[in-house]
């Protein structure tokens, strides 16, 4: 049976019809066609599908779309404002923190969840924040460097 849900995604009110079992990740990708949120395992281990749910990073393959009804979601498409890259996106580019790009949206959203707390993060904080996000290409070093750099000039 289909249920109608409405939620705010990247600042815009969106609605759609979903099954109870429809994952938030599938609703974002197939329902709203926001395909920046990627799927790498669908069991909550790789982190490629990470989005912000009411301000906190969550693996959107572990949430049913109906659970997020009425809530606030931010995806990677919501990071850049007025066509200007977010400092995290700039830093990922500059520090070569990306190869194939598949894990990148999840990495960015986990990092965004950390920096959005407005606390100056330590290297350990950064590692903890992205410890649930797997990257097979870069070996993580440049990703940590990028997040560190973005933390220095992060403004909301």
């Amino acid at each position: 049976m289909l249920k109608k849900i409405s939620l705010t995604v990247n600042g815009k009110l969106c609605s759609g019809e979903v099954e109870s079992r429809t994952l938030l990740a599938h609703f974002l990708r197939d329902g709203l066609r926001l395909t920046g949120t990627h799927l790498g395992c669908v069991v909550g281990r790789c982190g490629a599908c990470t989005v912000l749910w009411n301000g906190a990073p969550v693996k959107s393959c572990m949430v049913f779309a109906v659970q997020a009804a009425g809530d606030d979601i931010v995806t990677v498409e919501g990071l850049a404002q007025d066509k200007r890259l977010h400092p995290l996106q700039e830093a990922f580019w500059k520090n070569d923190a990306v190869e194939c790009g598949y894990c990148t949206p999840g990495m960015l959203m986990s990092a965004y969840g950390l920096l959005d707390k407005r606390i100056k993060p330590t290297e350990k904080d950064i590692e903890r924040a992205i410890s649930g996000n797997l990257c097979r290409c870069t070996g993580y070093g440049n990703i940590v460097a990028a997040i560190k750099e973005a933390a220095l000039n992060f403004t909301k």
Binding site: R33, L39, V98
Partner: peptide
């Protein structure tokens, strides 16, 4: 040189097979 392809990956606008419908 900074990579050309990175821009679409950091903005979530790359196109992988599963993104096509």
């Amino acid at each position: 040189v900074k990579r050309k392809e990175t821009l679409r990956f950091v903005t979530g606008t790359g196109h992988y097979v599963d993104d096509l419908l």
